[in-house]
């Protein structure tokens, strides 16, 4: 056995683990178990909230859009009605004017 073989044998020789190692490993495992898991940004719980919020936002926007559409229709109808009302009023005023003016002119003559 030459010197190299002797060194290799010494290096490969089994030595018992130190007494403190087992306790340290058990303590570390216990600490890992107690530590809370890190929050997952794209976990299922979070995705559910995001989806629910998006649905809620879509519903609110839809309701708002429908309200605005109804108000626009109502406004356009009211506007048309008002324009017709003014036209009827204007026409009647003009008719009365046409009836009254000749009488007034005759009175002036």
């Amino acid at each position: 056995m030459d010197r190299f073989e002797q060194e290799l044998k010494d290096a490969m020789r089994r030595e018992p683990a130190p007494d403190w190692l087992a306790d340290a490993v058990i303590a570390r495992v216990g600490a890992e178990r107690q530590r809370k898991p890190k929050p997952e940004w794209f976990g299922w719980a979070r995705l559910r909230w995001v989806a629910a919020s998006m649905v809620l936002a879509a519903v609110v926007s839809g309701v708002r859009f429908e309200q605005q559409r109804e108000e626009r229709i109502r406004g356009e109808e009211a506007k048309q009605e008002l324009m017709v009302a003014f036209q009827v009023t204007g026409t009647k005023l003009r008719q009365v004017e046409q009836r009254v003016l000749p009488v007034m002119h005759r009175g002036q003559e």
Binding site: M83, F86, Q87, T89, G90, T91, L93, R94, Q95
Partner: peptide, 15 residues
């Protein structure tokens, strides 16, 4: 009202 909207009768009736 009489001037701006007192348009000839026919137009009002169409509207």
């Amino acid at each position: 009202l009489s001037g701006q909207f007192g348009v000839p009768n026919v137009v009002v009736k169409e509207k």
